[in-house]
């Protein structure tokens, strides 16, 4: 379980998030939802210790994140952090150098799943395929927790569908997934839990099936209540 406990961060006087608390369980897909600029990316980076925070703490399975656990948590940024001149295979080799828990078998399964040819150069790929390569690289590491930043952002509908189907495949089984998005339609019925962020705090946290069962509402309905109907 990733436990975010009263995490606060500001850049100078600008408050990014204030006393944010929530949990993301292993074996579940948790989605951080918020309109653009609400600090979702910064929050993911703070969890992965990629940016300092002002106060609060993050624990993984009850322990604070230390260097040896960095391997157990993978951050997949919204842009592929690889040289465009690399081929897919070279990007894979690059990752292997850094991650001793790299899983070659899963990597080739994922390449097949997304129908990617590892000899292709990154600079020759469509945006959708670049996004897929990015996910292949992150998910081929044998980590228990995966942080995905906006995996659906800025790509065509068919690539979005293929990426969404990753969430119903066995590839994420038993892992704790924390994903950010502002386009919930792609994954409405694929996520376990939704966390709606507003004005730097958690406005609502719920299990999606519970909200449907108890109130007959979709995630989009809940978002409309939080982001549109003020007061």
């Amino acid at each position: 379980m990733i436990h975010v406990d009263k995490l606060s961060k500001s850049f100078g006087r600008k408050v990014i998030f204030d006393q944010v608390s929530f949990t993301a369980e292993k074996g579940e897909i948790t989605c951080l939802i918020g309109i653009n600029g609400v600090g979702k990316t910064t929050l993911l980076k703070a969890i992965a210790h990629l940016t300092p925070v002002n106060s609060g703490k993050v624990t993984i399975n009850g322990e604070p994140l230390r260097a040896q656990q960095y391997r157990d948590i993978v951050f997949i940024p919204d842009v592929l952090p690889m040289a465009p001149s690399f081929s897919i295979q070279e990007a894979i080799d690059f990752m292997k150098d850094f991650y001793p828990n790299w899983n070659d078998a899963r990597c080739s399964d994922l390449l097949t799943f997304f129908k990617l040819d590892q000899l292709q150069k990154l600079s020759h790929l469509s945006k959708g395929n670049v996004a897929k390569v990015n996910l292949v690289l992150g998910l081929s590491v044998d980590a228990h927790y995966i942080l995905m930043d906006e995996p659906f952002s800025g790509i065509d509908i068919f690539s979005r569908e293929e990426i969404a189907s990753l969430f119903s495949s066995g590839f994420l089984e038993d892992k704790g997934i924390l994903v950010t998005t502002h386009e919930i339609r792609d994954i409405e019925h694929l996520i376990d839990k939704a966390i709606l962020l507003k004005d730097g705090t958690v406005a609502k946290e719920f299990y999606t099936e519970d909200l449907r069962f108890e109130e007959g509402k979709s995630i989009e309905d809940a978002m409309r209540e939080i982001y549109v109907n003020h007061g």
Binding site: G27, E28, I29, A164, S165, F167, S168, S169, G170, E173, H189, L190, I191, D192, E209
Partner: peptide, 17 residues
Amino acid sequence: RRELGSTLKINPNTAQR
């Protein structure tokens, strides 16, 4: 459960439930 999840494109936890 896993097959059902990927055929119907739903969360495997939902298939389980």
